[in-house]
Design a protein around this nucleic acid. Sequence first.
DNA 1: CTTATATTTCGAGAATAATGGAAATATGGA
DNA 2: TCCATATTTCCATTATTCTCGAAATATAAG
Lengths: 114, 114
Amino acid sequence: MLSALGHDGRLAIFRLLVKAGPQGVAAGQIARTLDVLPNSLSANLNILAHAGLIASRREGRSIIYSADYGAMSGLLGFLMEDCCNGAPEICSPLTAVLARVEGCGPACAPKSPA
Amino acid sequence: MLSALGHDGRLAIFRLLVKAGPQGVAAGQIARTLDVLPNSLSANLNILAHAGLIASRREGRSIIYSADYGAMSGLLGFLMEDCCNGAPEICSPLTAVLARVEGCGPACAPKSPA
DNA sequence: CTTATATTTCGAGAATAATGGAAATATGGA
DNA sequence: TCCATATTTCCATTATTCTCGAAATATAAG
């Protein structure tokens, strides 16, 4: 997953998909938005999907891609536990980040642009 | 940073340094612990350092490498904010992770192996 | 000043990844 | 069936990264 995200284009794709929400975005629209060739995009979508970071579903002629929240959460959890185990200086600021985004919790509105 | 960590060997190095704490580990000992050639290690340490994830200091004949907690915290913060903005499903489990590592906070013991 | 230890730098070869054009597949509609 | 749209697959080229041996640098000690 880290190497999949360690690529400007793929990170941009993933960010776009996360911001788009669970409904996802069609491949063609991703290509237009990010101004990349459809075949390059397809290859990168494949890499992200193979890493488990995104999912896809067909809808008519389009194929809709969406971020896999669980996977990203798992990745962050792995990094945090792997890091915090012995390094509270890493996690401490993260509680502040979580507090700032504040919408994070079982009882929050799905979309509240800060 | 993501691409620096998106490499098995470098991730192993970084994890080792995080676990070692602020005192750091000498390059030679890293090489022995992870069983990698010293020149390969040096190249990877360079990549991690250039990404800002680790720092180095000379100590006698050895060069001691240590994890940069602030950089890792910043990376996680970026990922969390970039992701949570609109995706509480990602952050929600992370509060649980933070609660589990529990040592994370201004007033916690620096080392409490769970 | 020579020797030993620790680490880096250099350089070449191999492996891997990225890019982009062109063709192929899949779906929907006339 | 035929055409248009959407996406993928195939392929070759280029670029980047990885790996490892050998030499170079830096520090310490006798």
